[in-house]
Design a protein around this nucleic acid. Structure first.
Lengths: 342, 342
DNA sequence: TCATCTTTGATTGACGTACATCATTCCTGC
DNA sequence: GCAGGAATGATGTACGTCAATCAAAGATGA
């Protein structure tokens, strides 16, 4: 009636408990024929290890580390906050979380943080970082040391990361492009594009996607070359002001990097907040306020706490050598208007 | 370093293990003074029960039932599918799921399904149902029998449901209204509104929200009285056809009930698929296809598998008498365009 | 002061698995 | 046919909690 146990498997296979144990835990000293006898019994009975009991017995606890930049922007603050939020619930499942915050733009520091974790300090690492050879190598080494790794928010392809938890930024850019185009139905004009840095893969991808859609479907619009605001509100403020002084037919602003508050301030000061269509990324508190006020027309975002939970689930599954259910871990590109802000 | 155990609590409180056990499990035979000594120790040490060990010891498993209509629509099919998807993962956490599918519009049958579960058959019930006195009473009785209950997708206020897992349909309607208004920028015309049934609370709420936004912000648009398609594609097909024959200035179609395929077929046959703005609810396979094809401009939806997982988390938390972290369980109103369909 | 009831302590055996130890059996090559 | 290693069995302890038992101590009332 209830789930079969190792005892049942042993009986079914006609071997001792010890042998079943050896097989199940990949311990040496079992003949191939016996191994398959046991595995057959496992299949026949539909046995699956009781993870709770197993973890209890082996005093297992999952120690995972998040390596991500310090909370210098409100987006990063929300990521840090999401981790703190799940901490208590995670502890119930024997998952303990730690956070390492190297300076954002220092690949060596990030790599050092990862390296410090690679030998036995943790069972898994979730990394949010821009691509760099240092980070790539550090992840490779960690992976070789048996530490599971996932990339979050920003993908790190060509590393040994087990998985990427985050959105497709090209698609996110396309989504923004579609919204911009449709909101500017029958209006001719230019669109200001503000990046954090064109060195950041995410930002490049968003711009790419945006251009794809505008170029194909909205010939009434012309997107200006990306301005680099380096996620700095003051810098963004200046750039936006200049753009509006240089062109008198600006119909939209697409901000796909940080420093959104600077942009909002500039639009307010210029008095164009409700005349142009403004789309930004990440639902920060400032973005919420601007959505409510009507300055911001739409926000493209990703559910950060979903990402954090997903990263943890994937690291756990990797540690237990379980399969990952892709459809459950897919992070959606969310469109937030004033009305569905929650 | 590691988590405190009952032994630590006993030592800290200066009582025996047995007494700690009595206090922790609300067993009788402990003086009030001793109870508080133990509780102080628990607080001082930050002790929390190791749920895995506890469940193991008491051979506890969570048996939850989903009571929801048979999979007659593709939306309902997706709910059923989502439950099947989480089943294997849930079993690992000792959560077994069962599904009861009474006929959709039979309150007595739904109530009977709930009643059949109320005495010891399950630990928790997640119900998706329209409001009715029968269902309300059945839930009340189940709750009195110590069964935890949550409402999913469609709220059942004024019952003893512990929680509602789903979206605010008024806000969903407002979101649709905003999109419709903005996509129909500078265009005058009428909007066809198609409900499943105006008896369904969700549909009423969506219409209400839609009207709020259109009425306040988009005076260029006039929404026609809701047509009731009873979630039946053929009926919807006819209704849409008639609407377009009756009015020659239809600019948009808002379908906030089922039978979307009928609407899509009608628009196709009328050859207006890419001329009018079409917004519907629920990201079904047919909706996906129509989004990709461009007939459908936007879909308002909710992440069904998220809802299922959330309902399970909440039932578990209720059984263990743990707090629910609201922010983690909030279901977002999602806007899906062709570009962020995934 | 004794009987009785309440409160507390001490102990034990589950639950399903991990892991180590030691004894035994089996196979292999020589 | 025998040594020596490989394969297997038997057994015990542990993990943290639950649940039950019995004994001991304390409180209460007549």
């Amino acid at each position: 009636m209830s789930r079969p146990t190792v005892h049942d498997v042993a009986r079914e296979a006609g071997v001792s408990l010890a042998t079943v144990d050896r097989v199940l835990n990949d311990r040496p000293g079992v003949r191939a024929a016996t191994v398959s006898k046991v595995k057959d019994a496992v299949r026949a009975l539909g046995y699956s290890r009781d993870v709770a009991a197993a973890n209890l017995a082996r005093q297992r606890s999952y120690r995972f580390a998040f390596v991500l930049p310090e909370a210098t922007s409100s987006f990063l603050r929300s990521v840090h906050a999401a981790i703190e939020d799940v901490r208590p619930t995670s502890l119930i499942d024997r998952v303990s979380l730690e956070v390492r915050s190297p300076p954002a733009f220092d690949p060596h520091a990030i790599a050092r943080s990862i390296a410090a974790l690679q030998d036995g300090a943790v069972d898994g690492i979730a990394v949010m970082s821009a691509e760099s050879p240092q980070v790539r190598d550090a992840l490779k080494r960690a992976s070789e040391h048996g530490v599971e790794t996932v990339a979050v928010i920003s993908d790190l392809p060509s590393t040994d990361r087990r998985y990427f938890v985050g959105i497709d930024n090209i698609a996110a850019g396309r989504t923004a492009g579609r919204l911009m185009g449709r909101f500017l139905n029958r209006i001719d004009g230019r669109v200001v594009a503000i990046a954090g840095s064109m060195m950041a893969r995410d930002h490049l991808e968003r711009r790419l996607g945006f251009d794809q859609v505008i170029g194909r479907d909205f010939s009434n619009l012309e997107t200006l070359p990306s301005l680099e605001g380096h996620d700095d509100p003051d810098e963004v403020y200046t750039l936006v002001g200049n753009a509006f002084r240089n062109f008198n037919d600006i119909a939209g602003v697409y901000c796909f990097g940080g420093g959104v508050t600077g942009m909002l301030r500039a639009l307010d000061d210029l008095g164009v907040g409700d005349k142009v269509v403004v789309i930004a990324h990440e639902l920060t508190p400032a973005a919420r306020d601007a959505l409510a006020a009507g300055t911001l027309d739409a926000v493209i975002t990703q559910d950060v706490s979903h990402i954090v939970r997903s990263a943890i689930r994937i690291l756990r599954a990797s540690c237990d050598d379980r399969d990952i259910i892709e459809s459950q871990e897919r992070i959606r590109i969310e469109i937030i208007l004033k009305e569905n802000m929650i």
